[in-house]
Design a protein around this nucleic acid. Structure first.
Length: 327
DNA sequence: AAGCCAACCAACCGCCCCACC
DNA sequence: AGGTGGGGCGGTTGGTTGGCT
């Protein structure tokens, strides 16, 4: 099935990094003849490369209008916003960023933005709060370990420390769940970018992260970046050429993504409770993404509550702890 | 100084789409 | 209408680089 590779007929074609000489040949040839046919171009240029490789080298590196260097904050916001609308359509996203190639944007997304969103507790694919429950599982494991240890080694100070840690974790979990219950604002990428709490999920769980420290450790830089994004409004979308055009008639990406001014102003008014709307985002609000990708959104919520129930059940043997907290 | 590791990014691969015959 | 070829796209790989121990 499928077509054979364009250059399969000649296994002697060169692959790998381009030399300056090859670059020069390619540029000269395109300047002289243009690139009418990529397949014919290598022969014309005197290159032992396949046409596809030439095209890639030209479009991703040698084209004169390519803008190199670091992405600006504005470019980054445009990428995030467009990705929320378009998904991994890198070439479509690149069309809105003059001088940037799809490959460059894709790399930047995978190496920088993706990590930033994960840091903020946002799923980079759905642009919604992460729904993996590794944190809860870890917490549960910690609780099990502490309880088991307590049973087996009642006099062991190390296990007592574990028990203390587990109780601290419980306290934080309870406090954060109460906050969430009292929170009812819609979740969008931009409310997270504008949030004062850049680690919504981590905040919920009091920092029992399962990602590596490098990936998730709150850094001054991250916090600064997030704070700097608080000025973002829907004008970021307005600044784009016309994202609506992608969807033909009737698609209102602003309202579907919760990007209208009302929701934005609401989100900024609630800065006294910076936690994300983990509950309302999936139980209440239904964005277009929700509607098209519902299958990924239902199970995690119930699992969160199951984990919560499990915690309560585990503590039922000794209910005094919860009585103390609730009092 | 050497080795290890993580991050970055250029380039490749395989598939898809579309124009042309 | 169906086959074929070329170009384009998105995912992935692997080489390079820089930081850390």
């Amino acid at each position: 099935m499928g077509r054979s590779p364009c250059c399969a007929e000649d296994a002697n074609l060169k692959k790998g990094p381009w030399t300056p000489e090859e670059d020069q040949k390619l540029v000269d040839c395109i300047n002289k003849h243009g690139h009418g046919s990529w397949r014919a171009l290598p022969k014309l240029a005197g290159l032992n490369r396949c046409g596809k490789s030439c095209r890639l080298r030209w479009t991703n590196y040698l084209r004169p209008d390519i803008k190199r260097g670091k992405f600006t904050e504005e470019e980054e916001r445009v990428i995030i916003n467009l990705h929320a609308v378009l998904g991994n359509k890198w070439s479509r996203i690149a069309a809105h960023l003059p001088g940037r190639t799809d490959n460059e944007i894709k790399n930047y997304w995978n190496t920088q933005i993706r990590k930033k969103l994960l840091n903020m507790g946002i799923d980079p694919q759905t642009h919604k709060p992460r729904t993996d429950l590794n944190h809860l599982l870890n917490l549960s494991q910690l609780l099990c370990a502490s309880q088991l240890g307590n049973l087996m080694n009642p006099g062991d100070t190390a296990f007592k420390l574990q028990v203390d840690a587990a109780q601290l974790a419980k306290t934080q979990l309870l406090q954060n769940l109460l906050k969430i219950i009292n929170t009812n604002k819609p979740a969008t990428v931009d409310t997270f970018l504008g949030s004062q709490n850049p680690y919504p999920i981590e905040g919920l769980l009091g920092g029992t992260s399962t990602l590596s420290d490098k990936e998730l450790a709150p850094t001054p830089e991250n916090i600064t970046n997030n704070a700097g994004a608080t000025s973002q409004t829907s004008t970021d979308f307005q600044a784009l050429e016309d994202p609506c055009a992608y969807f033909g008639n009737g698609f209102n990406y602003e309202s579907n993504l919760g990007m209208n001014n009302q929701s934005l102003s609401n989100s900024f008014e609630q800065t006294e409770n910076p936690l994300p709307e983990l509950v309302s985002a999936s139980l209440g609000q239904t964005s277009s993404i929700n509607q098209t990708d519902d299958k990924t959104e239902t199970a995690p919520d119930s699992t969160i509550y199951e984990a919560w129930d499990k915690l309560i059940m585990e503590d039922e043997a000794d209910g005094s702890y919860w009585k103390e907290i609730l009092e």
